[in-house]
Design a protein around this nucleic acid. Structure first.
Length: 635
RNA sequence: GCUGGCGUAGCUCAGUCGGUAGAGCAGCUGACUUGUAAUCAGCAGGUCGGGGGUUCAAUUCCCUUCGCCAGCUCCA
């Protein structure tokens, strides 16, 4: 009998007869329990598939991204089977794995209720107990269409009509679903799953189509992994910036003022002020100059910039001022261009680096507003660099250094970086695009930053680098964006006088590091779970006298700390120390300074931190410690 | 914008299968002078998101509108 040589991941080779199933192969390796599917020469396959020749074999377990996909895709099938058994009139549509789980969309006469989800989950458990074997079927297009027509699944028929044969489907018990696969070998493989939510979703994602009922679920290979994941979801809920924003009295969004418009309360405002001071100081140190611009400008400016043409949906209606239309600004760039235009510029002047905390207003559809993360009025930490083409790379290098420094200050040290290249519709010459894209890429490489290329995802006016930061829970947030712009310099006809005495067009680079102050603040609240590091904390130290007898001593401490620039407060209410501590703790105050008769006599402080640890220090020692922590921005 | 859910005191929430509402915390007043996450008592507080309709009567049912939440969509 003919044999095939299989090379396994650990570089060992194994000879097996042709036609051996991967199931048998995995069994012979003693890994049947954890292996869900295999990768054959890079292609994921079922365990039931047969060895057809020499191949590189990978074993897919739940620990690999591909294994997770297989497992969760099978989980989606399991859920669909449960739904069909409970609600036979539900029509199946699609059900893919997603990050952290899976979903399945059904066309059903009503939304699924939480009680439905419980029933479905119970049915899923039952189906796993049946441990149904999962079979792959390969069909011609006609067979596939007939099969799903007979089964009364019109959405599946619609999908089949658009795909090329051979068409595959998977069967477990009486349940059949159109699917590329691969899948786990039997329903009993699914050990730990939970249905999370139901919600509406459009067929094929278009609001012109019918609204379907989507059920989200998640699944894991082990119960404790599922529990850990559910715990993380709880943690995310606890950290919700909207909840913490209210509890810590940081900000509010008022119905009477309008959706997406933020009120910064004193506690939030002092954090913002501290953050902005840091931002300005850092920019000046890094060779930027600060500028300011107005909130409205003549409509003509936006015509010239092209925003009226390309950004209209996000702009508010113009207002009439003395018979002339003015527009609320959605961006700062045209203003900075006008500053550029206010003088004749020489190649010797370039680059210019102009930064502004510029407040812009953009119309966002009502359904997308979300706390501080998506608002209608916000302040960008914006800057525009005007440089010569040969300066792009060095400028990008500086921006990359600068943004990593700024983000690191807030404890963000892991990024996903994307380089977006020329889209189909673009302005500017091919040569410019290539030069700029190469400059961006070269800068990323020099910095040793790992990045992915997003082909064709650049903006029409130039290539860009986007950075997503990872917070303490591992969630990604898009903040930094660095965009080369060939368009606006052209539209506004800006130029500089070159060495050759001729006019040249400068390159403009837009960049925002935090993105917007509002959004970044929202991310920070969640990142720190409201327990801001001491340099940002609204109240850095709270003095808690035990009785009225220590009021004078407590007052001296407060005065001393205030003079040293520490944001301190005193709680001299006629209350028990337990209550004062509890309230300071709930407000996540970094240091509680308890002073009773003992401390007053010794001129010391009982310093309690947020973790509940106490030490006794002299006032001098505490002042030194807290100032050190504030200036170094630790803790 | 779309689908679904929700909107009751400053906050968190209960309640009314139609007869104009209740708790805890917060607030105010008083007592207590207190040692590391809630001292006790009393008082006060709501046109039940807004508008309209049905009804003898609407916070409750219906319509509409605004807002919030989840998801979709969108984010040149």
């Amino acid at each position: 009998m003919a044999e095939a040589t299989l090379r396994l991941e650990n570089q060992t080779e194994k000879k097996v007869p042709l036609g051996t199933t991967f199931f048998d192969l995995v069994k012979s390796l003693g890994k049947l329990k954890e292996v869900l599917a295999v990768r054959v020469n890079g292609q994921p396959r079922d365990l039931s598939a047969k060895v057809e020749g020499d191949a590189e074999i990978g074993l897919l377990t739940f620990d690999s991204p591909e294994g997770k996909e297989v497992y969760r895709h099978s989980s989606a099938h399991l859920m669909a089977q449960a739904v069909k058994e409970l609600f036979p009139t539900a029509k199946m549509t699609i059900g893919p794995p997603i990050e952290d789980g899976f979903y399945y969309d059904f066309d059903f006469e009503r939304p699924f209720t939480p009680e439905d989800l419980e029933k479905i989950e119970a049915k899923m458990v039952e189906i796993t107990k049946r441990d149904l074997q999962v079979f792959r079927m390969e069909l011609s297009k006609e067979e596939a269409i007939r099969l799903f027509q007979e089964r009364g699944e019109p959405y599946k028929v619609e999908l089949i009509e658009e795909i090329e044969p051979p068409i595959s489907a998977y069967r477990q018990g009486d349940f059949i679903d159109l699917c590329m696969g691969p899948h786990v070998p039997s329903t009993g493989k699914m050990k730990a799953f939970k249905l999370i939510a139901s919600a509406g979703a459009y067929w094929r994602g278009s609001e012109k189509n019918k609204m379907l009922q989507r059920i989200y679920g998640t699944s894991f290979a082990k119960k404790d992994e599922l529990d850990a994941h559910l715990k993380k979801l709880e943690e995310i809920k606890k950290r919700d910036h909207r909840k913490l924003g209210k509890e810590l009295d940081l900000f509010s969004i008022s119905d009477e003022i309008g959706p997406g418009l933020v009120l910064w309360h004193p506690n939030g405002a002092i954090i913002r002020k501290t953050l902005e001071d840091f931002w300005r100081e850092a920019h000046v140190k890094s060779g930027y100059e600060l500028v300011y611009s107005p909130h409205i400008a003549r409509l003509d400016l936006w015509k010239q910039s092209g925003h009226l043409q390309f950004y209209k949906e996000n702009m508010y209606a113009p207002m009439d001022i003395d018979g002339m239309p003015f527009e609320l600004k959605p961006m700062n760039c045209p203003f900075h261009i006008m500053i550029y235009k206010s003088h004749l510029r020489s190649y010797r002047d370039l680059p210019f680096r102009w930064a502004e905390l510029g407040t812009v207003y953009r119309y966002e559809r009502s359904g997308v507003l979300h706390g501080l993360l998506r608002v209608r009025g916000f302040t960008q930490d914006d800057a525009h660099l005007f440089c010569r083409p040969d300066q792009i790379e060095s400028e990008i290098l500086k921006v990359l250094d600068f943004t990593t420094f700024v983000l690191k200050t807030f404890g963000f040290e892991h990024y996903d970086i994307y380089l977006s290249t020329r889209p189909e519709k673009y302005v500017g010459s091919l040569e410019r695009w290539e030069q700029a894209t190469a400059a961006l890429e070269s800068a990323l490489k020099q910095k040793g930053l790992a990045y992915q290329i997003d082909p064709g995802e650049g903006v029409f006016y130039g290539p860009k680098i986007d950075m997503k930061i990872k917070d303490v829970l591992g969630r990604s947030w898009q903040c930094t964006t660095i965009q080369v712009d060939f368009n606006l310099p052209e539209r506004f006809g800006i130029s500089y006088r070159g060495e050759d005495g001729k006019e040249h067009q400068p390159i403009m680079i837009h960049r925002a590091l935090m993105g917007s102050i509002e959004r970044f603040f929202g991310i920070l609240i969640e990142h720190y779970a409201g327990a801001f590091p001491i340099w940002l904390a609204p109240v850095q130290a709270k003095i808690l006298p035990i009785t009225e007898r220590q009021r004078e001593y407590a007052g001296q401490i407060q005065q001393r700390l205030r003079e040293a620039g520490v944001r301190s407060e005193m709680d001299d209410r006629n209350e028990k120390i337990g209550l004062k501590i509890r309230e300071a703790q709930l407000m996540k105050v970094p240091y509680m300074l308890v002073v009773g008769d003992r401390e007053a006599a010794d001129q010391t402080l009982a310093v309690r931190n947020r973790a509940g640890e106490s030490t006794t220090l002299t006032l001098d020692a505490f002042e030194k410690k807290i100032l050190e922590e504030i200036t170094t921005r630790v803790g």
